[in-house]
């Protein structure tokens, strides 16, 4: 079975932080269309701080996710901080005792993270939130894994599904969060949380595939 050592995968956390910081203005712009316009500012603040805490010698993937989750809980309030904070903390917890990640343990990790987000936030698919990226991504990943596809192929499927999930939020009407005030007028715009989530999953998938 293909696998990546958690130590080799460690620097991916810094890549994930970097992609958010790099696209802060874009995320705020999306959010500004139907929300407060502060998603990019808040996310980049937390992820930049996480990058600083990780330092120049990144810990392994599990410790990296734990540090990232802790930092988001410390630094970002609103809904973003606790949602992403528990996403990363619960993924870190699912890796406990391992020193490598393979197709099945990645699937289990993703399920743990998604369950944390849904448990805390209560969003359902179709509400126009990050769950609309997470749910199809994890479902597609599961499907590929059930067919016996290799880790690399499953990660590609996850990447594509998260992109499609993000695009699908454009046509949704927000039912939760501040954008729900706009009702029908929220249609035609991407959801900012879904956009940041897609960036994170993309960076994670790409980073792991580089080692496979």
């Amino acid at each position: 079975m293909d696998s990546v050592s958690l130590k080799d995968a460690g620097p991916i956390v810094a890549d994930m932080a970097a992609v958010i910081v790099e696209h802060a203005a874009y995320l705020s712009e999306i959010d500004g269309a139907i929300g407060d316009g502060d998603h990019g500012i808040n996310m980049s603040k937390g992820f930049r701080r996480a990058g600083e805490r990780l330092g120049p010698h990144p810990p392994d993937l599990a410790q990296g996710f734990a540090t990232l989750g802790e930092t988001l809980l410390d630094e970002i309030g609103g809904s973003t901080g606790p949602l992403y904070g528990s996403f990363f903390l619960d993924m870190a917890a699912s890796l406990k005792g391992r020193d490598a990640i393979d197709r099945d343990s990645f699937g289990a990790m993703l399920h743990a993270g998604v369950a944390a987000v849904i448990d805390l936030g209560g969003a359902k698919t179709g509400d126009k939130t990050l769950v609309d990226v997470l749910a199809p991504a994890v479902a597609t990943y599961d499907e590929a894994a059930a067919k016996g596809e290799p880790f690399h192929t499953c990660l590609e499927a996850l990447d594509r599904a998260s992109e499609a999930g993000l695009e699908a939020t454009r046509d949704m009407v927000a039912r939760i969060g501040r954008a729900s005030r706009l009702g029908e007028r929220s249609r035609g715009h991407l959801d900012a949380g879904a956009a940041s989530c897609r960036m994170l999953l993309g960076a994670l998938s790409r980073g792991l595939r580089r080692h496979l």
């Binding site: 502060d38 410390d74 309030g77 609103g78 809904s79 901080g81």
Partner: peptide, 8 residues
């Protein structure tokens, strides 16, 4: 922050 919950 303005109109946003404090962090955990």
């Amino acid at each position: 922050e303005v109109f946003a919950s404090p962090s955990a």
